[in-house]
Lab assay of single mutants.
Amino acid sequence: MPVRRGHVAPQNTFLDTIIRKFEGQSRKFIIANARVENCAVIYCNDGFCELCGYSRAEVMQRPCTCDFLHGPRTQRRAAAQIAQALLGAEERKVEIAFYRKDGSCFLCLVDVVPVKNEDGAVIMFILNFEVVMEKDMVGSPAHDTNHRGPPTSWLAPGRAKTFRLKLPALLALTARESSVRSGGAGGAGAPGAVVVDVDLTPAAPSSESLALDEVTAMDNHVAGLGPAEERRALVGPGSPPRSAPGQLPSPRAHSLNPDASGSSCSLARTRSRESCASVRRASSADDIEAMRAGVLPPPPRHASTGAMHPLRSGLLNSTSDSDLVRYRTISKIPQITLNFVDLKGDPFLASPTSDREIIAPKIKERTHNVTEKVTQVLSLGADVLPEYKLQAPRIHRWTILHYSPFKAVWDWLILLLVIYTAVFTPYSAAFLLKETEEGPPATECGYACQPLAVVDLIVDIMFIVDILINFRTTYVNANEEVVSHPGRIAVHYFKGWFLIDMVAAIPFDLLI
Rank of each mutant, 00 (worst) to 15 (best):
378 L>W: 07
319 T>H: 08
2 P>D: 05
84 Q>I: 05
386 P>L: 01
116 K>P: 12
101 K>W: 01
13 T>A: 07
314 G>I: 05
4 R>V: 09
272 S>C: 07
85 A>T: 12
113 V>I: 13
131 V>D: 15
157 P>E: 06
9 A>L: 06
134 E>C: 09
220 N>S: 05
300 P>A: 11
148 R>K: 12
263 S>A: 12
90 E>H: 14
280 R>W: 09
35 R>N: 08
146 N>G: 08
206 S>G: 12
294 G>T: 12
128 N>L: 11
204 A>W: 11
292 R>Y: 14
65 T>Y: 08
248 L>N: 12
174 T>L: 06
273 R>H: 09
126 I>Q: 05
310 P>T: 10
226 G>F: 08
212 L>M: 05
82 I>K: 01
97 A>D: 14
358 I>C: 12
34 A>K: 06
225 L>I: 03
306 G>K: 04
236 G>Y: 15
92 R>L: 07
284 S>I: 12
177 E>M: 06
62 R>G: 14
362 K>A: 09
177 E>C: 05
222 V>M: 08
309 H>E: 11
386 P>M: 02
168 P>T: 06
106 F>M: 08
148 R>Y: 05
267 L>H: 11
170 L>E: 08
284 S>T: 13
209 S>V: 13
161 K>T: 14
260 A>H: 15
98 F>M: 07
105 C>S: 14
287 D>M: 07
374 V>N: 04
181 R>W: 05
253 A>H: 14
17 T>H: 08
282 A>P: 07
79 A>R: 10
197 D>W: 01
58 E>A: 03
55 S>R: 06
21 K>I: 10
102 D>I: 01
220 N>F: 05
54 Y>I: 01
127 L>W: 01
257 N>P: 07
135 K>R: 08
341 V>K: 15
341 V>E: 03
54 Y>S: 01
94 V>F: 01
324 L>G: 07
65 T>M: 06
379 S>E: 03
230 E>P: 06
127 L>K: 01
111 D>T: 14
242 R>V: 10
112 V>K: 01
296 L>A: 11
108 C>T: 11
130 E>G: 11
72 P>E: 07
341 V>S: 13
314 G>E: 09
338 L>D: 14
71 G>M: 01
148 R>M: 11
212 L>F: 06
82 I>D: 01
83 A>N: 11
189 G>S: 05
